[in-house]
Amino acid sequence: MGSRRQFLVGTVGIGFGLLAPAHATLAAKVIVPDKLCTLSRSLIRTLSDGNAISVKREWQIGFSAVSGGFVVSGRQIAVSVDAPPSLAGLAQMEAKRTETNLFPIELDASGLLRAGVDPLTPASMDNALAKAEDFLAGQAPSDDLKAAARTFAASLDQRAAGLLSLLPRDLFFPRDKDWREAKTLALPGQQAGEMTIDFAATTDPDSGLLVRADRTISTRIGSSSRRSSEVWSLTV
């Protein structure tokens, strides 16, 4: 990010708890740019037929200093949608939609979202998989367990997509830059199940600011698998 003027927020050393798995690293420093940037987000969902739908949005954003932290303001400047022909109508509607609820975003002095959440954690995975086990355990022996598993796989995928849509608290200043968590699911009928979360991020070495972050949730029950992923990037 060269010689641009920047606001130095400070050096922080904190324990991150549920921000990421226990092996999270500490952020050395947090610096916000003093000029407009471009933030982009690509959401990709694999469909049951093997096709995928992706939506990419871009916003022009700026950081403003306030008491105890910062406010990130922004406006949508571009959107693109890639979907199979069968979803052309949905893709057209999504392409016309302007995301107005994302901003403003409040950051504390350490660069974390004040109102953010930490959706991608081992605890959230355990909760989702516990519900899957309860559902499948309640099926009568005469039920078609494979069909039930496929039905719940779709439900679990929807839950995973919902988790992925929530903003992590360390969006702009990723703390732990490379981690993976996998949980297995005990299923009747000798079927296997699993939910996996993968995260990888790159940051500017001088400021700690996000460059790119990839988050992916994969779910599998029996032979049915789904995948939801997102990519955030910030260009200064």
Rank of each mutant, 00 (worst) to 15 (best):
S155R: 14
K183E: 04
K183G: 00
G111C: 05
P119R: 06
I53C: 09
I197T: 05
P168V: 08
L136H: 05
G222E: 07
I217C: 04
P122L: 08
K146V: 09
L112W: 14
S223W: 02
V211K: 12
P122S: 13
T203Y: 05
L166V: 10
L112T: 08
F16H: 04
F103I: 01
T235S: 12
L129G: 09
I14T: 12
L163S: 00
F173E: 01
P21N: 07
A182H: 14
R215P: 01
G62W: 15
A213F: 07
D176T: 13
G74M: 13
A161D: 14
G50S: 08
V55T: 01
S155I: 13
F63R: 09
G17V: 06
R180H: 09
A132M: 03
V55Q: 00
Q190F: 06
G2P: 13
Q158M: 14
R227E: 12
D34G: 00
I197W: 06
D118S: 10
N127V: 08
K35I: 04
Q190W: 01
G15M: 10
A109I: 07
I61K: 07
V32F: 14
S73K: 15
L156V: 02
L18E: 00
T25R: 10
D108Y: 13
S228R: 09
V72R: 02
Q190H: 13
L19R: 08
D170A: 06
D178R: 08
V12G: 08
V231D: 02
S40H: 00
A148T: 08
L8V: 07
G193Q: 09
Q158E: 14
P84V: 12
A140N: 04
I217Y: 02
A182P: 05
F63Y: 13
Q6N: 07
L136I: 14
R45H: 08
L185Q: 05
K29F: 06
L113G: 01
N101S: 12
G74Q: 11
A200D: 07
L87R: 05
A148S: 11
R75L: 06
E99D: 14
L129M: 08
A88F: 10
I61T: 11
A88E: 03
M125C: 04
R45V: 05
G10R: 09
M1E: 14
S67H: 15
A213Y: 00
T98A: 03
Q190S: 10
A130V: 03
I197H: 01
A20V: 02
L107P: 04
S86C: 11
G10D: 07
A137K: 12
V12M: 13
E194G: 09
L171V: 02
I53D: 04
G68Q: 06
S225H: 10
L36S: 08
E99Q: 11
G68L: 00
D143T: 04
E230K: 01
Q191W: 12
S3C: 12
S64H: 11
L129T: 15
W59M: 11
F63E: 00
A20G: 09
T11G: 04
V9Y: 15
R227A: 09
D176Y: 14
S124M: 03
T219R: 01
S86M: 06
P205I: 06
A109F: 12
P174D: 10
F152V: 04
R180A: 01
L129D: 08
P85V: 02
I53W: 07
G50N: 09
L19S: 00
A123Y: 09
T121G: 03
S67V: 15
N127A: 11
F173C: 01
A130L: 05
